[in-house]
Design a protein around this nucleic acid. Sequence first.
DNA 1: GCGATCAGGT
DNA 2: CACACCTGATCGC
Length: 394
Amino acid sequence: MSSFAGRMKEYPNMSLDRFDRENLHARAYFLSHCHKDHMKGLKGPLLKRKLKFSLTVKLYCSFVTKELLLSNPKYAFWEDHIVALELESPTLITLIDEASGEREELVVTLLPAGHCPGSVMFLVEGAQGTVLYTGDFRLAKGDASRIELLHSGSRVKDIKSVYLDSTFYDPRFYQIPSRETCLHAIRGLVQDWVSRSVYHTVWLNCKAAYGYEYLFTNLGDEFHTQIHVKSLDMFKKMPEILSHVTTDRATQIHACRHPKDEEFVPASRLPCGSSASDGTPLNIISIKPSTMWFGERTQRTKVIVRTGASSYRACFSFHSSYSEIKDFLSYLQPINIYPSVIPIVILYTLNVFSTPQLPNTPFANMPQPLIPLPQPLIPQSPTPNTPIPLCPNP
DNA sequence: GCGATCAGGT
DNA sequence: CACACCTGATCGC
C-alpha cells in the first residue's frame, strides 16, 4: 500500500499519486496507474473547485490510465484537465504558478511499469537533476537495461533519486516466480479441468482491481474462449482486452464477482448466478491469484497450491521481488532511494500508528531516505546528461 | 446527506 | 504471508 505523500524533494511543485493535503497546491498532477491507493484525494471537492478556476493545472497519465479513470463517472470532472502522454516520448512540461507567473520547465517521460494496464513510471529531467518515480512496478531481471530512455548514448543516465515501489524490498521476498512461469502453471491447471467436460468450469477469484487482464487475454487465446466478467465498459477503447472478455455467462472461464462469492463455488454456483444451462450441475474449481515468494536459498516449490476440495491458489504478483528490485537499483545506481511503501515493521518502530501530528510547514511531509544503497555491480564514472530529443505530444 | 476513517472481510 | 479492494459502522460537518 503506497504511503508516498505525493511530492519529490527535487520537484515539489508537482504531485504524483496523491491529491490531498499539500498536494492541493501543486502546479501539475501525475497518476502512475488506476489503483485506488494511488488516487487519494483525486475526487475531493477542494481539488474539483481548484480545477474550475484554473486554466493551467493538468493531470498527466498514460492513455490507458485516462480511459480507465474516466470510465468511472466520479472522475468525469477531470475530463478537460487530463493530458495523456505517449509511452517513451520525452515531453516538455511547463509548471506555471498562476499567482506569480513563475515558470519551471521539466522533461517528463512515461516508462511502462508492468504493474497493471496503463501503469507507468515517471522519469523527470529538469534543473534539479534526473529523478525516477516508479509508481508500482513489476519488472524482471535485466529489464532496466532494455529501457532506452534510461540511457544517454550507451550509458545509464545519472539518476539523482529513485522514488521506489518498495513493497517487496525485503530479503524475505527474495524470489517470486516469473510471470511466464506463473501463467504456464495456471494454463496447465485450467487445461486439466476444462478439458473434462463442458460442465467443468473455472472461477478466477481475482480482486476488484486492474492487473489481471493479461491473465484473461492469455487464457482466452489458449482456450479459444472469452472470460466472463462483470462489466466491459472500462475496456471500450482497448480492443486487445475487450476481445477476450464477455458478459455472456455461457463460458467455462469466469472472473465475475459477487459480495459473497466465496460461498458460491462449493454450492456448484458461480458469482454471476450461473449454475447450469440444462440443469446439470457445474463442476467448479476456484483459482485465487496470490503472491507467493521464496527466500534466497529456499528451493522453489509449487507455484499452484491446493487449498480445498475444489480451490487453488496460484502464484501471481503485481510487484517486483527483492532480487528484481536489487537488480533494478544496481543497474541505475541512483544517489538517493526513497521507499514509497513503508514496511509494517518500520511503521511500528516509528510509532506512526499513533495519532499523527501534522505540522503546518509546507515541506514537513517530504520523504526521507530510509534504505541504504545497494552494492554497485557495474563500476560507473559520472557522466553529464546529454540533451534529450523532444518528441511532440500528439 | 456527505465524506473521511476505521474495523473486519476476502 | 500481502495485496487492493469491499462493506458496514461511526464520526464530524
